Amino acid sequence: MFKRVVLKLSGEFLANENGFGISPETSRRLAGLIKDALEGTQVELAIVIGGGNFWRGERNGKGMDAATADYIGMLGTVMNAMALQDAMESVGRPTRVMSSIHMAAVAEPYIRRRAMRHLEKGRVVIFGGGNGAPFFTTDTTSTLRAMEIGADVVLMAKNKVDGVYDSDPRKNPDATRFDALTHQDVVDQRLEVMDATALTLCMDKNLPIVVFDIFQDGNLRRLFAGERVGTLIQS
């Protein structure tokens, strides 16, 4: 059973049906799902959220300075973190946003010990602003924060994909799902779980990863209860 977890969410989970921007209704539905899964557990939850519903550096920033494009994406993650905080608190779950990019009017600066203290007090902590430096994805931020705060696992949330497959199950109906893999298996088979930097960090520090469908009824609660869901990756 996991005590402290980092949940990696896609920014698109907050978006409207076109996959862009923030839908308050969609955000509250996601917040309610997370709140219900936490009820009655002792799990300490930190969240890292992407910014793809606003900006993707390699696509939207084409022709721009690459570092500038990445910083714009980091600002998008702060907007998503604030929106998710609002949704979480609207369903009654105390939440704190911490940003690697200092913007004191809307978020606390990321300080490792302060983040851990929030978790110990039962608050959900949402990390925005990436890791504060360009050229790294929010996958890498998830693994870095997980190691810093002593998390037991990184939960990689997906939509309509219930684990890791040997090929894209949305394109190949005969794709095979893996119940368990090692980090090295993921590298050797070039499976698309997370970016290479993030995966290498997890492998070096033996940090488990679970890939699962967050919108499948009961999955998140079952994970918090220690049940096997999706695909487990560990050394």
Rank of each mutant, 00 (worst) to 15 (best):
F2E: 10
V6E: 04
L7T: 03
S10M: 10
G11R: 06
F13W: 08
F13K: 10
F13Q: 10
F13I: 11
L14C: 04
L14Q: 00
G19Y: 12
G21V: 05
S23T: 15
S23K: 12
P24A: 05
E25T: 13
E25P: 03
S27N: 10
S27H: 08
S27F: 09
R28W: 14
R29Q: 13
A31G: 02
L33C: 04
K35D: 09
K35F: 06
D36I: 04
E39F: 14
T41I: 10
T41V: 10
V43P: 00
L45H: 00
A46K: 01
A46F: 01
I47G: 01
G50S: 06
G52Y: 09
F54I: 02
F54K: 00
W55D: 04
E58I: 14
R59G: 13
R59K: 12
N60M: 13
K62H: 15
M64T: 09
M64V: 06
A67W: 03
T68L: 08
Y71Q: 02
I72Y: 03
G73L: 05
M74E: 00
L75D: 02
L75H: 09
M79L: 11
N80V: 01
A81Y: 01
A83H: 06
D86H: 14
M88P: 01
S90A: 12
S90K: 08
V91A: 05
G92K: 13
T95S: 08
R96D: 03
V97P: 00
M103D: 04
A104Y: 13
V106P: 01
Y110V: 13
R112G: 05
R113W: 04
R113A: 09
R117C: 11
H118C: 13
K121E: 10
G122A: 07
R123W: 14
V125A: 02
G129S: 11
G130S: 03
A133C: 11
A133H: 14
P134E: 03
F136R: 00
F136P: 00
T141M: 10
T143H: 02
L144H: 06
E148V: 04
A151D: 01
V154L: 08
M156K: 15
K158S: 15
K160E: 09
V161H: 09
G163T: 07
Y165I: 00
Y165C: 02
S167E: 11
R170C: 04
R170Y: 07
P173V: 05
A175N: 09
R177C: 04
D179G: 10
A180N: 10
Q184A: 10
V186T: 04
D188P: 09
R190Q: 15
L191F: 03
L191Y: 03
V193W: 08
M194C: 08
D195L: 07
T197R: 09
T200L: 14
L201P: 06
L201V: 10
C202E: 08
D204M: 12
D204N: 11
K205V: 12
L207F: 11
L207E: 11
V210G: 00
V211E: 13
D217F: 08
L220S: 12
F224C: 08
E227L: 14
V229E: 15
T231S: 13
